[in-house]
């Protein structure tokens, strides 16, 4: 009964997922009924959709524990044992770049940014100019996330405290802000939040924690976390620079 074992515990996960989604249902119901005083459109679609969301979340969490966490940790362990710094850093860069370049939220933000740039007159307001602006922005952000993971992994190996690097990054953001064109600032600040997707986060967390647990003298709590923080900070810096250069 292998399938029974694999599916085991799904009932509990479904109950937890339903509990996690209850606040959204409450907020939406309150605003629709009490504040806006309107009936629910398409109640059937809403109920079916909610059932899908609950089941989807439960499956995702189960898959996380079976697939994403173990592979991230086992790869971190193998790299640490292999002792090849080059390949570990190459892997970190590839993971950061590869997961970000195709990120749908980033593609959407890139399109919006191109519209802003076109309206502000930085680039010609044509379809072609906007598309090229959007894709260079996308590669800039993806490259910066790759760089972030490379620096972040190097930090884990060295055991440097995360806050000096992050505070240094904050200072760079503050220093670059007055120099960048005002139209790009909102986009730059938002780009930090949109880069880390639902599949990247568990993988990157498992990588960091796996490395910190395997390397002697590193504490997974102090050294293992922090990769996501780098991945959310560097895009801000690079998009501000991008705004000044382009």
């Amino acid at each position: 009964m292998a399938s029974g074992r694999i599916l085991g515990g799904l009932g509990r996960l479904i109950a937890e997922a339903a509990r996690d989604l209850a606040p959204i249902a409450l907020v939406i119901a309150f605003f629709q009924v009490v504040v806006l005083q309107q009936p629910f459109p398409n109640l059937g679609a809403i109920l079916t959709g909610t059932a899908f969301v609950v089941l989807g979340l439960a499956l995702f969490v189960r898959g996380l524990e079976m697939g994403l966490f173990p592979i991230g940790e086992s790869m971190a362990e193998s790299f640490a044992r292999k002792g090849s710094l080059f390949w570990l850093l190459a892997f970190s860069f590839a993971l950061g770049f590869g997961t970000t370049v195709a990120e749908p939220a980033l593609i959407a933000v890139g399109g919006e940014a191109a519209k802003v740039a076109g309206a502000a007159g930085f680039i010609a307001d044509t379809e072609e100019a906007r598309a090229s602006y959007a894709s260079s922005l996308r590669y800039t952000v993806a490259g910066s996330v790759g760089l972030a993971l490379t620096i972040g992994v190097f930090r884990i190996l060295k055991g440097w405290p995360v806050h000096y690097l992050i505070i240094g990054g904050y200072i760079m953001v503050i220093a670059l802000t007055p120099l960048a064109p005002p139209e790009i600032i909102g986009i730059a600040y938002d780009s930090g939040g949109v880069t880390t997707s639902t599949i990247t986060v568990p993988l990157v967390t498992a990588l960091g924690v796996g490395l910190a647990s395997t390397i002697r003298g590193r504490n997974p709590m102090i050294d293992g976390f922090g990769l996501i923080a780098f991945a959310s900070l560097t895009p801000m810096i690079f998009v501000l620079i991008f705004g000044m250069v382009v």
Binding site: L55, L57, A58, L59, F60, G63, M66, G67, T198
Partner: peptide, 12 residues
Amino acid sequence: GFAYVLAGLTLF
């Protein structure tokens, strides 16, 4: 696990 993540995310 990967299949679960994909199926879960899709339904979600």
